[in-house]
């Protein structure tokens, strides 16, 4: 018979992982609930998922590409921006929604127990669905620019995994730090505004002065952005300097989960 034991000791990471596994159905349940309710009583429904990046793409391509005349090597500028934005929006969605998810589900976690990591994990599912839909924007744009798709596109799921891992790392650390004092949440919009300029989304790698480039190469989100383009476009080059930044993503997310799960039963007291 099932035996549940509670003590004041935090669970080990492996015990916590097996518990997340036991509750895994809830991840999808939460994600479906989010998707269903997000687009409830809207005419366009999931269509909104495509409209948002489309508007951003139009604005950025017009101002940076057309008005300011920025270029992106061999790639058409609009394609360059879109391929950068896809990964960035995915990342930003998980970070913002994920770190708010404990607070948003406060009514739930005060009354029902489940591993709290399920909430950010469900946001990853939602973000993945929305990413899948907004990725469709690439198709007409690549056809228009006659840009060939690389065979490396099969590696894209790995890149998405790295992208999610680094976002989850931030979510776990921010949530674990900010559950008592919520100041960090007020910093989040700024982080996202500035953060977009720490990755090669609107401009190319080579505009960065050489002295700073090694820092740039250590930024996992910059690495992931480059990896996105490398997987999509045959013409894209890849700088091996980005590899270390990519390798740390998954270990970091587990480190974050370990740190986050130590307080698993305390979040409800402050949510």
């Amino acid at each position: 018979m099932l035996r549940t034991i509670y003590t004041s000791e935090p669970e080990t990471l492996s015990a916590h992982l097996s518990k997340i596994w036991r509750y895994r159905a809830l991840i999808i349940t939460f994600a479906v609930r989010d998707l269903r309710t997000k687009y409830a009583q809207t005419v366009l429904g999931l269509g909104w998922t495509i409209l948002q990046p489309l508007t951003a793409l139009a604005i950025f391509s017009f101002f940076f590409g057309h008005v300011l005349g920025w270029r992106a090597g061999d790639l058409p500028y609009s394609l360059y921006v879109l391929s950068g934005l896809l990964g960035w929006n995915f990342f930003a969605y998980i970070v913002i929604q994920g770190s708010q998810s404990l607070q948003d589900s406060g009514h739930l976690i005060r009354k029902i127990y489940f591993p709290k990591a399920l909430l950010p994990l469900s946001k990853v599912c939602v973000a993945t669905v929305e990413l899948g839909i907004s990725t469709l924007l690439l198709v007409p744009l690549m056809l228009w620019h006659a840009q060939a798709l690389s065979w490396r596109v099969v590696l894209l799921p790995v890149v998405v995994l790295l992208n999610a891992s680094i976002a989850l790392f931030l979510v776990f650390v921010i949530s674990a730090l900010a559950y008592r004092k919520r100041d960090l949440f007020h910093l989040m919009p700024f982080l996202m505004y500035f953060g977009i300029w720490t990755a090669p989304i609107f401009f190319t790698d080579d505009v960065m002065p050489g002295a700073y480039r090694f820092i740039w190469h250590l930024n996992p989100i910059a690495c992931v952005t480059e990896a996105w383009r490398y997987c999509l476009f045959s013409d894209a080059a890849f700088d091996p300097g980005f590899i270390p930044g990519m390798l740390v993503c998954v270990p970091l997310s587990f480190l974050g989960l370990w740190y986050f799960s130590r307080n698993d039963r305390l979040y409800s007291d402050f949510a």
Binding site: M1, L2, R3, T4, I5, Y6, R110, I112, Y113, S268
Partner: peptide, 23 residues
């Protein structure tokens, strides 16, 4: 505490079987 929603500061609780809690 018994449903696991909140942690305990000290002590130990043990429940046998599947637990359904309606707080």
């Amino acid at each position: 505490v018994l449903s696991g929603v909140t942690g305990l500061t000290s002590g130990r609780a043990e429940l046998l079987g599947k637990v359904a809690s309606i707080l």
